[in-house]
């Protein structure tokens, strides 16, 4: 049932992406409604400011994990439908695993580095 578990994670990551992206979008664009107190949440200074808070770093890293998994698994599904070669599929699997890990380290480095430089 390995592929079923991967699929369930895909569904879970969709929910996670919707929740954390929702938080991100709400804070960025519903400033007046939520009354967060920030003058311009989309400004560079506000973004850097959030990235130095551990709560926001956790939210952004979780959003990254969910969105990355959802995107790569979805793309793999499309490629899987276009090729019947098991060899090609194995290559795609490894490419996505290695690529995903590299993108994750690269993208999570910035908020982690900012938080540690606080």
């Amino acid at each position: 049932m390995f592929r079923t578990r991967l699929r369930l994670l895909f569904l879970l990551s969709a929910v996670g992406t919707a929740v954390f992206l929702g938080i991100h979008m709400a804070v960025q664009h519903l400033n007046n409604v939520l009354a967060t107190g920030e003058l311009d949440p989309t400004s560079w200074a506000s973004t850097i400011g959030r990235a130095t808070q551990s709560g926001w770093v956790v939210i952004y890293i979780l959003l990254l994990v969910f969105a990355l998994y959802h995107a790569l698994y979805g793309l793999r599904g499309i490629i899987l439908e276009l090729t019947t070669s098991e060899k090609a599929l194995r290559a795609v699997n490894w490419l996505f695993i290695v690529g995903g890990v590299i993108v994750f380290i690269w993208a999570s480095y910035v908020p982690l580095a900012l938080m540690s430089s606080r």
């Binding site: 049932m1 390995f2 592929r3 079923t4 699929r7 599904g77 899987l80 439908e81 599929l89």
Partner: peptide, 13 residues
Amino acid sequence: RLEIADSNHGAWH
């Protein structure tokens, strides 16, 4: 049977 349907080209496709 469910193991067979769990393949790369199975039910989730």
